[in-house]
Amino acid sequence: MKQAVSIVLVLLLGAFIFTALYFADSSPLQFKPYGDADLSGRVSQGYVDKNVTADAASEEPAAVVYGETKNAETGSANIVTSVVVNYRSFDTLGEVTVLFVAALGVGLLLSGKRRRQEAAFQPSFILKHGVRIVLGIMVIFGVYLFTHGHLTPGGGFSGGSIIAAAVLLLYVSDNAFKAKVKAFKIAEGVAGSLYVVAGLLGLALGGYFLYNFLPTGVVGDLLSAGIVPIVYILIGLKVGSEISGVIAGFATEEEAL
């Protein structure tokens, strides 16, 4: 009975969504089909042009040229990064906190007397030593992703996840391996605190929380975009250590009594 009601409800919801999206009337407030939306009226156009702080809307934005434009707004060559770590950095601080509190929950639930959980298979010699070779490359790639987050695709979240994947590999390849969870905790706390401190510095120096108070340099340079790369490195460290901590938590099991 419960299942039948659920199925009917889901079908009704689906029909509602479908009709609302696809049987469009001519109302200007109607969801626009793919390709019909007026992109120039959206806030994201300002992010692409890097002229959000311009006074008049009629002002023609200057073209942003890679490797030439100096002191551009945010200064990040990667447009996505300029949105994530500068225009909407406050949301990103929130997202970092989402991950933080989720990891905290895992830690609280899986705390107490626990021992290392063993894999169902015995890691082979090749797996064990192959991991040692791959490990360094993975960590370097992760670090590369978050230090170049303002230039190329990637950034703190993906870079941090790759580093955590390296830690996961260590756990999978060695039944005796135990990471230093305490070190993860310290890295996590320090990186998170520094992110907030960077925001507070912006408030003290520029009058706005998370204000980009460093010079933004030339678009495309490694040392450009002001606090953006610094914040992304902090996010990378935080995400990497947090997910590693979660992996370390799940790799343990309750001590048999």
Partner: peptide
């Protein structure tokens, strides 16, 4: 006073303390 009365501090300060509490 402008800085101290900025409402964002109501969010930033507890958050900062939460991150600090991880290693303290």
């Amino acid at each position: 006073m402008d800085i101290l009365s900025n409402p964002v501090l109501l969010i930033a300060v507890p958050l900062l303390f939460a991150f600090l509490a991880v290693f303290l």
